[in-house]
Amino acid sequence: MTVHGNGSPEGNKFLDSEFRYTLFPVFYSLVFILGLTGNCCALFVLRKMREAKAINEIRIYMTNLTVADLLFVTALPLWISYYKERGHWAFSDALCRITGSMFFINTYCSILFLAVISFNRYWAVTQPLDAASSDHRLRGIVVSVVIWFTTLSATIPYLISPGINEHNETGAVIIRCFEGYQNETMDHKWWVAKTHFVIIGFFALVFLLVLICNLLIGRTLMLQQAKQAGRQGRRLKKHAMSMVCVVVVVFVVCFVPHHVVQGPWAMAVLELTGWEEGTRQWLNDVHQITLMLMGLNCLLDPVVYCFATRKFRRYICNRFRKLSRGRMCSRYTASTRASTDSQQHNQNLNQVQLRSVEDAPKW
């Protein structure tokens, strides 16, 4: 058994999940296509709303959330290549650090911006007069700057430390990107584990705040049900309740499973527990599935926008109406042109027939 440069044995086995090398390239390719299309369209709509002076605090948050999603999407081709090469990083260490950081930035920017969107909607429901009297753009800008600064600051350790780990597996050198810490020293392993648990604690606190905000929104809307009589009031209540459900679903589907599994998984892959091989393998398999679920976040965020603000919904609906009218007009024009051409053809045919009759020999 060889010894690693830091004093730990080289013979520790890398805990892997073979199914990801088949599943991940297909899944991330679909996320890349759909996420790039959806978020570019969302950014276009938000830009048009800004030109129409319809931008306010929540649309500032949505724009920043879209930018975070696009950062993640643009890094996906490198991760697709990584999984197609069966976990071998064929690029530089710098690119490994950047792409890994983009994954971190997207995850926690999304979590924080969804949290402030939830708080913004709670404030709009409970303080409607204040929300209607001012757009609070400055607050939106300041909060966005704080979120980006906090997330980027937390990413610095990933950017300044080596991201790749080289391993001699089955007679070949495999270069892992942000994986393969099994041969590190115990001090470094515990540092990695503690970092994971700090992140889990941070997420739990944010998720608790999101749950409280959305539960209070739902409670307030239920209490206002009797006051908001009429068709418009019911429609607004329905959209607001839908937004509450969508935000909670995004957290429960995309983020909660990963952070529930993250702690035990880190302890398993770092070999800091006495768990048997089957338990460690099961945790690693589940962890890979939760990574896929987190990738769905950039597809679900544009859905949140549709429920978060009426002007975004209205713009999308108006565009679809114009497109459908354009198709109807084009069909009508084509039908009218075909009818005109048919009438012209019949007239020409009649003229030919008349000439034929006139030119026929007279007996």
Rank of each mutant, 00 (worst) to 15 (best):
R280C: 13
H167E: 00
K311H: 14
S133L: 09
G7E: 07
H239I: 06
C41M: 11
S330F: 02
F197A: 04
S110Y: 12
T2N: 08
F312S: 15
L30V: 11
S342T: 06
S29E: 09
L223R: 00
I200M: 13
Q353E: 14
M243T: 05
D69Y: 06
Y21N: 01
W123F: 15
G171R: 06
G35N: 10
C96D: 08
A52C: 02
I217P: 03
K84F: 15
F19H: 05
V125S: 08
V246E: 06
D341N: 15
C96R: 02
A360L: 12
D16H: 01
P264V: 00
H136W: 03
V173P: 08
F312A: 03
V252I: 10
V246M: 10
V198T: 10
F207Q: 10
R321G: 05
D285P: 01
L354I: 01
P264Q: 09
R234S: 08
L65E: 15
N6E: 08
R331P: 01
K227V: 01
Y158L: 00
W89E: 03
S153G: 05
L323A: 14
V3H: 07
E169R: 05
P361N: 04
L236Q: 12
E179K: 06
T185Q: 12
N64C: 04
A54K: 14
F251G: 13
P77D: 00
F27T: 09
L216N: 14
F119V: 04
H239R: 00
H88K: 03
W89N: 02
F113M: 07
I200Y: 01
E166Q: 02
F251C: 07
I111T: 05
A68L: 05
V142Q: 14
D69H: 14
S324F: 14
Q182V: 02
F203A: 01
D16V: 09
F104H: 11
H258M: 13
